[in-house]
Design a protein around this nucleic acid. Structure first.
Lengths: 154, 154
DNA sequence: CGGCAAAAGTGGCATATGCCACTAATTGAA
DNA sequence: TTCAATTAGTGGCATATGCCACTTTTGCCG
């Protein structure tokens, strides 16, 4: 009794992960809705907050996201005045990012909403369990996966 | 020693999940690239394949995705001739979905590529571990999360 | 039977993400 | 110093996802 469960219940690690991400994403989105921020924007703003005027590349690396994707995602936040960029003093190719005063305020506001969702989630699955899950997800995220054949030679 | 780890290493379950999803998504996308399908499209086609001419709403529910999002995602697959829709015999509101012969062929092609990535992943984390992770993710995905205060009164 | 609420999709609008082709700066030789 | 290779971002294009406002069908109730 290990096969043919709910029809279409895929064994694909990626599909399962995305499915969970959609589900949980909606939950956190709902929770953050009053702030006007999406959970992704909240995460990005938080990342900027805890970093020290990080370069775009640094953020992209930390979040494991494409640099250009980061640029796109940053636009609405800049447009709304929560984030601003400025050139690095030593390397003009580098663009650094920081929160504006408004961004700080918005982050505080969002953090309150976020903590409710976070608590709610951890009550359901248990803080221990949640921590384990995050740890497992971090392992997966930082895995050095590479296609064997696809790589250069053998 | 439980705080201030890697800068910006968030405790947010959602952020951690999305980060892992981006990472793993790229891996599977790379693996499927030769087929021309994205991992999301592969997952969708697979879901359609294992279902019996499912209605759009049925697919959306299984994948926990917004019905309209499903509609959007389906478009390129229909355009490329892998999927087709047809009206339900009894309820004209319902639109059912199925793979075209080309879709079946493409699925076979993609499955071969997918299995390589899947195997590669499970070798890295261990089949046992991977299964546990998927189980945990399914639990999370199917959790009945709801904002307490956000609900009606209280 | 008439009409209203619920159910299933569609379309528009906005954000999330990626890849690719380019441009601007740097760095590292020759 | 000069030029090729590398690094950091940008812009365009395409898919992924959601929410909301509608439209079409059904269902159901009085």
């Amino acid at each position: 009794m290990t096969k043919a469960r709910k029809p279409g219940f895929s064994d694909c690690n990626n599909a399962t992960l995305r499915r969970a991400a959609r589900s949980l994403g909606r939950f956190y989105d709902d929770a953050l809705a009053p702030s006007g921020l999406k959970s992704t924007q909240f995460g990005l703003i938080f990342q900027i907050h805890v970093s020290d005027e990080p370069a775009m590349g640094t953020i992209a690396e930390a979040l494991i996201m494409d640099l250009s994707a980061l640029g796109h995602t940053l636009k609405p936040l800049i447009r709304d005045g929560y984030v601003e960029t400025f050139p690095d003093k030593d390397d003009r190719r580098v663009k650094r990012v920081r929160l504006t005063p408004q961004g700080d305020v918005k982050l505080d506001e969002a953090l309150k909403l976020w903590s409710v969702a976070q608590r709610q989630f951890e009550e359901k699955v248990g803080a221990e369990q949640a921590a384990k899950l995050r740890a497992a997800l971090d392992v997966v995220a930082d895995l050095d996966l590479e296609m064997p054949a696809a790589a250069s030679s053998n």
